[in-house]
């Protein structure tokens, strides 16, 4: 048995090394399955919870066009959550179980969504920085070794390319607007910059999962590499609209061609993950309430379907 497992593992790792995709019914080590369920469900929960900070501005969008485009964007996030839940379901966990894990606090979601959206500039900043960071991550995940997760990310990347542009458009209009608007933009960027860098996860020196995930090509780049890529992309974009990134240590290194940045406050990162962010309670409460208020609706749909089926059989 043990010998058999070893041989299977070797064959599995060889397939991955050859760049093959692993599909749902293929043999995979239990740990690969567990890691994927953890990552994909966390990603799905993040899409769902991520609807909330932006969603609360849909009714306050400052023009009808903005209302339409923000609604379309937040709706996309629901769609992306759905693709991801379906990808996780191919690994033998169902959506209800994942929802339970979210509501009980057992499963995590991206802690950035525990920060509040205070002005309309936050909507632009989230699109620009938070979606910008997510795209860097998802572009990598679209090439990961698990077929359903790679395909879900590919679809997400295709659909999400307008999100970042939408955010940056809002920022550039406001940054070129009135004094009040410029103040809102700078304030929003000051609040969202560091949390966006934290989105890539703990530093490589303190990321116990990374080595294994990279060997199995669930991840193709380390947290720090992705973070650096995001910073390099973002600094020129900030300059182009005269927005200051709140990091006095930010400087270009001619040799490495990287924008070096200051120390991230990891204490804050871990505190927010543990539930001490400004909006943790509200976010989970909103999801819990939606689940509870939807329960009788889902029951009704199932009861009606059963009745209809019984009639057809009769």
């Amino acid at each position: 048995m043990a010998v058999d497992e070893k041989a299977k593992l070797a064959a599995f790792e060889e397939r991955i090394a050859n760049g093959e995709k692993i599909e749902p019914k293929d043999w995979m080590p239990e740990r690969y399955r567990k890691q994927l369920i953890r990552m994909i469900s966390q990603h799905a929960h993040s899409e769902l919870v991520g609807m909330l900070p932006e969603g609360n501005w849909i009714t306050r969008a400052p023009s009808l066009r903005r209302k339409l485009t923000l609604l379309a964007k937040v709706q996309d996030e629901a769609g992306h959550g759905l693709y991801l839940y379906c990808a996780a379901e191919t690994l033998g966990i169902d959506r209800d179980e994942m929802t339970e894990q979210l509501l009980s606090g057992k499963a995590k979601y991206s802690s950035i969504f525990n920060y509040p959206t205070l002005t309309w500039a936050d909507i632009g900043t989230i699109g620009w920085l938070v979606d910008g960071a997510a795209i860097v991550n998802q572009t990598m995940l679209a090439k990961c070794s698990y077929g359903p997760y790679a395909r879900a990310n590919l679809r997400i990347c295709k659909e999400e390319n307008f999100h970042k542009r939408q955010g940056y458009e809002i920022i550039s209009i406001m940054a070129n607007g009135t004094d009040a608007q410029r103040r809102m933009v700078q304030d929003a960027v000051d609040r969202w910059w560091w949390p966006s860098l934290m989105m890539f996860g703990p530093p490589d020196t303190n990321s116990p999962n990374t080595e294994e995930l990279m060997r199995w090509k669930v991840k193709l780049k380390s947290n720090d590499d992705l973070r650096q890529r995001f910073v390099n992309l973002t600094v020129p974009q900030a300059r182009a609209v005269n927005v200051t990134l709140p990091d006095p240590d930010l400087k270009y290194n001619e040799e490495t061609r990287n924008w070096e940045f200051g120390e991230i406050d990891w204490d804050e990162f871990y505190a927010v993950i543990k539930g001490h962010g400004p909006m943790n309670r509200e976010r989970l409460e909103a999801r819990r309430s939606a689940e509870e208020r939807g329960q009788w609706v889902r029951e009704a749909a199932r009861a009606y379907a059963a009745k209809k089926q019984a009639k057809e059989v009769a």
């Binding site: 759905l82 379906c86 959506r95 009606y304 209809k308």
Partner: peptide, 10 residues
């Protein structure tokens, strides 16, 4: 892809 639904119309 896939969706959850109670019946075919849904």
């Amino acid at each position: 892809g896939s969706v959850h639904a109670a019946d075919a119309e849904q």
